[in-house]
Design a protein around this nucleic acid. Structure first.
Length: 263
DNA sequence: AATGGCCTCCGGACGC
DNA sequence: TGCGTCCGGAGGCCAT
């Protein structure tokens, strides 16, 4: 499930492959993937444009094009952009193809939750989804005091806060569990009751877990081991060896260690 | 106002 | 083998 580290990895892949390239042809195989346009007008508006830059904002990918146009994409559950040679066989879940020279960028998405829109540069700041995104957790602005301000007077569990894209952008269910395990915080812990050391641990682990996963994924691809301690170790706590608890918190399946993460 | 719960999209995994 | 159920990112809706 693509979260900040995965989306950042895709952004880097697209940046390498696309910046400076001209889009020669666009082929929409699954029309509902494009929400803003009919397939033909989407293809027509993209054709001939040059990719100026690629950035990530939360879990969104922003592909800036010549003519002050931006392709805004969200991978949701199973989306991915692959960069392949033109003659490479088509993956059965390919939804959109962007052809540039000898290579193609293909949007592949088994469950079809992913989507993309073509947005004018001037409308980016009001675009639904982007408009309300919170702070980038790996930016220099995300300091301990900023986190403290963010959580000030806020009710709800620490997990529900981590999942809120309008507070901190880019954390999903899997990394939320990992951050809380690393920070030794119970997922259902009320966020306004965190002590100063707990808040410091939370801040530190948000940055550490996301940065480390981004580095490993970008360097070694999705086959990396040792990326997540809680979700990939057979249901036992890597710290104390006890059986992990599986509960629903903030409407999401949550793994945690009842011994190391006490309320 | 802010929070939480539930529904929707889709298809793979899993249980009976 | 086949069928029902669950899950999830985010927006929308409704209840509290």
């Amino acid at each position: 499930v693509p979260e900040l580290p995965d989306v950042e990895t895709v952004a880097r892949r697209l940046r390498r492959a696309l910046v400076g390239q001209r889009i020669r042809r666009v082929n929409v195989l699954t029309p509902p993937t494009i929400r803003s346009h009919a397939p033909a007008s989407f293809a027509r508006r993209l054709r001939g444009r040059t990719v100026k830059s690629v950035e990530r904002r939360g879990k969104y990918l922003l592909i800036h094009l010549s003519g002050n146009l931006v392709l805004v994409a969200h991978l949701r559950m199973t989306g991915d952009f692959e960069v392949v040679a033109r003659e490479e066989n088509l993956h059965p879940s390919t939804r959109v193809i962007f052809a540039a020279n000898a290579r193609e960028v293909r949007f592949v998405d088994q469950r079809r939750f992913g989507h993309m829109d073509l947005v004018a540069q001037k409308d980016l700041s009001t675009f639904p989804g982007l408009r309300s995104l919170g702070i980038e957790p790996l930016s220099a602005e995300f300091t301990l005091s900023r986190l403290r301000e963010l959580l000030q007077d806020r009710r709800g569990s620490v997990k529900s806060v981590l999942l809120r894209q309008d507070l901190i952008a880019g954390i999903g269910n899997i990394y939320a569990d990992e951050i809380l395990w690393q920070a030794r915080l119970h997922p259902a812990r009320a966020v306004d009751t965190l002590s100063a050391p707990q808040l410091r641990r939370l801040h530190r682990q948000i940055r550490r877990v996301l940065a480390r996963a981004t580095r490993l994924l970008s360097r070694y691809g999705s086959a990396v081991g040792d990326l997540l301690e809680v979700r990939e170790r057979g249901g036992h706590c890597p710290r104390c060896g006890r059986r992990l608890a599986v509960e629903t918190t903030a409407g999401r399946t949550t793994y945690y260690c009842p011994h190391c993460q006490r309320k």
